[in-house]
Design a protein around this nucleic acid. Structure first.
Lengths: 149, 149
DNA sequence: ATTATTTAGTTCGATATCGTACTATTGGAG
DNA sequence: CTCCAATAGTACGATATCGAACTAAATAAT
C-alpha cells in the first residue's frame, strides 16, 4: 500500500474513533444526572474496580485530562456522594480518591441501563466487531500512551 | 463466550475508544491555535473535502454535536477566516458553510505536522492495527449512527 | 541543617459546551 | 389566501474545560 494511503487510513481511523466516542458519550450522558460527563462516569468505574483508591494525579494521567480538570470532576463526583477524598497518609500534599457504596450502586444501575440501550446494536452486529478490534485498539492506545514523555 | 464477558468487552471497547480519542485530541490540539478544538478541526476537514458546502444542521448531525454548539464552533472558525457562512438561497432560514482557501491551506499544514508527530507510532506498530480495525469501527459507527431516530 | 528544586493539588480567569427559549422562514391544511 | 405546525439557526445562562500562576509538602543539594 502506498504511504499516503496509509496516512489516509490512520486519519480515517481517528475520525471514526472520534465519532464513535461522540455518539456513545451522548448516549451515555442522556442517562446521567445533571451535567455529569462520560469521562466522570469512566473515572467512577475505574475507582469501583480499585477499592484501594488512586490519587488525583494517577487519574489525570490515566484518563489524560489536565490536573485542573480532574480537580473539578472529583469535586463534582464528591458532591454527588459517589466518591470520597481523603488526604494521603503517605504524602500530605496528595489525596486518595475512593468510590463510595453509593458510587458503586450508581455505576451498576447506569451500566445496566446502558446495556439495555446497546442491546439492539449488539444483537445486530454480534460481538465480533468489538472482540476483533479490541486488541488493536489496546495496542494503539498503549503506543500513544507511552509516546508522551 | 458468556454474555457478561461480551458486555465486558463492549465496555472495554468504548473505554479504549474514549482514551484514544482523548490522547489524539490532546496531541492535535497542541498544534492548533488558541483554544481551537479537535472537533472544529474535523469540521474544517469535512468542509475541505466538500467544496459544495454544507448547512450547519448537516454538520451538527454528522458530528453529533448540538446545533447550538455548532453555531459557536462555526463562528469561531469564521473569525479565523477558515470558513465562510452565506445564507442559503434555497431556504432563507438556512446557511451554507464552505471552507476558504486559507482553511484548506491551514488544514494541510496541520495534517502534515500531525503526520510527523504520528510517524514514530506508525513505524512502531505498522499500518495493520489501523487497517484491520477500521472496517469494524466503521460498522459500529454506522450501527450507532442509524440507531438514533 | 538549610536552602533550592520538584511535585500534588487548587484557585482564578478565559473560553467551550449545551439545554431552554426565542425569531424567522417554510410548507401544508383548511 | 390565511393560519398553523415544523424547521433552521441564534441568544442567553449555567456549567465544564483547561492554561497560568499559586501554595504547601517532599526531596535533593550543599
Amino acid at each position: 500500500m502506498k504511504p499516503e494511503d496509509e496516512t489516509n487510513e490512520v486519519y480515517r481511523f481517528f475520525t471514526e474513533v472520534g465519532i464513535i466516542n461522540q455518539l456513545i458519550s451522548t448516549k451515555l450522558e442522556a442517562f446521567l444526572p445533571g451535567r455529569m460527563t462520560a469521562t466522570q462516569f469512566g473515572i467512577l468505574g475505574h475507582l469501583v474496580r480499585r477499592p484501594e483508591g488512586e490519587t488525583p494525579l494517577q487519574l489525570s494521567n490515566g484518563f489524560q485530562v489536565p490536573k485542573t480538570s480532574m480537580t473539578h470532576m472529583l469535586a463534582s463526583l464528591e458532591n454527588h456522594n459517589l466518591i470520597t477524598l481523603e488526604t494521603n497518609p503517605k504524602d500530605k500534599r496528595s489525596k486518595i480518591v475512593r468510590s463510595t457504596p453509593q458510587g458503586a450502586e450508581f455505576l451498576k444501575t447506569c451500566m445496566e441501563r446502558m446495556s439495555e440501550a446497546l442491546a439492539p446494536i449488539l444483537s445486530e452486529l454480534g460481538a465480533s466487531p468489538f472482540h476483533n478490534s479490541l486488541p488493536n485498539l489496546t495496542l494503539i492506545r498503549e503506543a500513544l500512551d507511552s509516546e508522551r514523555d
